[in-house]
Structures are given as structure tokens and as C-alpha cells.
């Protein structure tokens, strides 16, 4: 809030507020968690493809977001689509952060995280279910993925499902490429996709 409107006679009252609030906010997240009032926990981690926002619900990891998606707008959409009871709670995402670290270090080929797919419905969800079948270091075309689904001709819809994958990296939409061999679009940008495919090819 603006401090400019405070009469000078009252100004001394605002001293020390910042420190008090920092302590209060810290205790508050813990108290909220203890009361079961945290519906979505998140943290931000650094990675070779830029900073990643990781969010989870009670059911599991629900969102992985690239910086290019705008972490603030991702939080807003989590608030709108899941619950506004969202808190920065890094410890609750330790496991996801560790597995991603191992993946980027080339030591992990498959994720063992519990996933919450509530942000992908219908056909999009169906596509995501098939993606783990494309194993580490391999790629498949959008057409090949479409052929696995209940709508084998829905190549474009497969592209959409990949582009709107709420759990990139963990659900490997980066392994879906164009039929002509070019890597195609990616949520995290074409450089990120190239980096991931190179990482997997080398490990």
C-alpha cells in the first residue's frame, strides 16, 4: 500500500512492519498447511530450460510451467481452475524438484511422480496418457500419436493437446515431432525442445 498518504504524526507506527510481516507470512503458510487449507502448493526451480514453476495438489503434481508462460498468469489460472488457496511451499515439491534435477543431469529416464491430470480433459487427456509410451531418447510424429488414440485422424488435436500439456517434461510432449523430421512447436520454445531432445539423445 502507498505510504504517501500517512500523516507524519502517524508515520512512526509503520516502523518495523516489514520484518514483522516477513515473520508473520512465514508462520502463516505453515499454519494454513497444518489446518489443511493449502489446496495448491508451488515452488519455482532453475533448470537448463529456464525457471520452472512446479505446482501440486493433494492428488499429485498438477502443473509444470515454463517462464515463457508467465508464472504469475499460471498462478492466476491455477487459482481460477483449481482453488485460490495457493501457497509457496517448496518442501512439498522436493520430490518433483529432485526428479527433474536427475532428469536434467541425464540420470533419470522416467519420472516416478504421482500426477494430477485434472487440467487436461477429454481427448487432451487421452493424448497425454499415450505420451509416456514414447520412451526416453525416442520421438514420434503427431500422426503416429494420433494413430494410437481413439481418433486416429485427429493429428491437429494431438498438436493442441501437446501445446497445452499442463505437465511438460514429466509427460514427454517434447518427444512428439513433425512428420518431416523438424521438431515443431513447443510450450517452452523451440530451443528448449531441441535441448531436451539433444539431452536425451546423448544420455
Amino acid at each position: 500500500m502507498s505510504e504517501t498518504g500517512i500523516p507524519q504524526i502517524l508515520a512512526p507506527l509503520t516502523g518495523g512492519e516489514a520484518a514483522a510481516l516477513a515473520a508473520l507470512a512465514g508462520h502463516f503458510s505453515a499454519a494454513a498447511a497444518a489446518e489443511g487449507l493449502v489446496d495448491v502448493a508451488y515452488r519455482v526451480v532453475d533448470s537448463p530450460v529456464g525457471s520452472l514453476l512446479l505446482a501440486r495438489t493433494e492428488a499429485g503434481l498438477v502443473r509444470v510451467a515454463f517462464a515463457s508462460e508467465g508464472h504469475d498468469s499460471v498462478l492466476d489460472s491455477l487459482a481460477a481452475n483449481i482453488s485460490p488457496r495457493i501457497f509457496l511451499a517448496p518442501a512439498r515439491l522436493d520430490e518433483a524438484a529432485r526428479e527433474l534435477d536427475e532428469y536434467f543431469a541425464g540420470h533419470r529416464r522416467r519420472f516416478d511422480l504421482t500426477l494430477d491430470f485434472r487440467l487436461a480433459q477429454g481427448f487432451r487427456r487421452e493424448v497425454l496418457d499415450y505420451l509416456p509410451q514414447i520412451t526416453y531418447g525416442h520421438t514420434a510424429s503427431y500422426a503416429t500419436v494420433a494413430a494410437m488414440t481413439s481418433s486416429p485422424r485427429a493429428v491437429r488435436a494431438v498438436g493442441t493437446a501437446c501445446a497445452r500439456n499442463p505437465l511438460p517434461l514429466v509427460v514427454p510432449c517434447h518427444r512428439v515431432v513433425r512428420s518431416d523430421g523438424r521438431s515443431g512447436a513447443y510450450l517452452g520454445g523451440p530451443e528448449a525442445k531441441a535441448l531436451l531432445l539433444a539431452l536425451e539423445a546423448a544420455s
Binding site: L78, A79, P84, I86
Partner: peptide, 9 residues
């Protein structure tokens, strides 16, 4: 929709 609660805090 209501913003993330942290923003209110």
C-alpha cells in the same frame, strides 16, 4: 476469480 491468496497476504 479470486486471486491466489498469497497475493492478498
Amino acid at each position: 476469480a479470486p486471486p491466489p491468496f498469497e497475493m492478498l497476504v
